[in-house]
Amino acid sequence: MDMEFADGKILAEIKDGVGRITFNQPEKRNAMSVTMWDGMAQALDVFEKDASVRCVVLTGAGDKAFVSGADISQFDKLRSDADAQREYSKQTAGGRLRLGTYPKPVIAEIRGFCMGGGLGIAMSCDIRIAAEGSQFGIPAAKLGIAYGFDMVRHLVDLVGPAHAHMILMTGERFDAKEAERVGLINKVVPADQLAAEVTKLTATLAMNAPLSLYANKRTVQAVLQDRADRDIAALNAAMAACFDSEDYKEGRRAFLAKRKPAFQGR
């Protein structure tokens, strides 16, 4: 099933238990416009409601960029000063929140430039796989801007404060091997193996128990939250749902029979 959102700048498809979102503005290295944020959120809504979708992949059209950042051509109109920036943040908040709280596993398939807000999108994913030759960076210091708390917190959670300072203060680009070294991405692979690597990963996730994926993702997110924001009762309920599920029974049966389980998400 193929879908389009944001006037075709967000493409979405469902295949083999995987929902795929493609940022489709290659002439601007897939820079994110306001409407693209809304389109991404709409695609994620469709994927969440479809029980056949076990995980989601985000990627960029073409071979030049994942997402090169925000669409700078909109800055004069939408982000000209602090007041305009606050309004821009409100307009894009829905998409950011949707991705940041999405219950199913999300993988970033990164090829080419992954810069600024594009890196923010990748950091909001659960797993990041990048092709050799990809370029990363947060050039805020070179544009005279600063990034919000949530994005910087994601960065610090992944790479620690020392590397975060280096990335933010220099504004310099760095390659995929360096991104892997500091913990920003999970794995770097040759460019011609990226699609196969991600397909192998999504096939594994699509076969695993959906309730387990949901519960464990939610628990990892809670670990990174402030203690006061953690909903321990909800985490315990998600864990109990796993133990009370038909999938847990199927998992035990499959283990004893030495076969692959057929999980249904219930």
Rank of each mutant, 00 (worst) to 15 (best):
A254S: 12
K260E: 08
D192W: 02
G118L: 03
R54I: 01
D247E: 02
V220L: 13
G39M: 02
G171N: 07
V46K: 11
G19M: 08
N186V: 01
M32C: 05
D63I: 09
P261V: 12
C55G: 03
A240Q: 15
G137Y: 03
E132N: 10
R181T: 13
S73R: 10
A191D: 09
T219A: 15
T92E: 00
L213D: 13
I110N: 04
K90H: 09
E48T: 08
Q135A: 11
L184M: 06
I185P: 00
A31Q: 15
G148F: 04
A6H: 02
K260N: 11
V223Y: 12
V46W: 06
G69C: 05
L44Y: 07
T101L: 10
S134R: 03
K187M: 13
S33E: 11
I127M: 15
L78W: 06
G183V: 08
R79M: 06
R259K: 12
T219V: 12
A61L: 02
L58E: 01
D244G: 08
D50W: 00
R266M: 06
K77G: 11
L119W: 01
K260Y: 09
F5I: 06
K187W: 06
G171W: 09
E132R: 12
A238M: 14
G265N: 03
I107D: 05
A65L: 08
S33Q: 12
A262I: 05
A84L: 07
V67H: 02
F174N: 04
Y88Q: 01
T59Q: 12
A257D: 15
V106Q: 08
N208F: 09
A164K: 04
K260Q: 11
A206T: 05
C242I: 15
A131H: 05
M207N: 14
Q225L: 12
I121F: 14
V46F: 08
K90A: 10
V34E: 07
A51T: 14
E109F: 06
G62C: 01
D2F: 13
E13Y: 03
N30E: 09
A162S: 09
G120D: 10
G251V: 03
A93D: 07
R98G: 02
A61H: 02
N236R: 15
A222R: 03
K200E: 15
G116E: 08
L256F: 13
D71K: 04
W37T: 01
Y147I: 07
G171C: 05
L194D: 02
D16C: 01
P190V: 11
A238C: 00
V182A: 01
T59S: 12
R98P: 04
K187P: 00
L78S: 09
A122E: 01
K177S: 14
E109H: 12
N208E: 14
A222E: 03
M40S: 00
T101G: 05
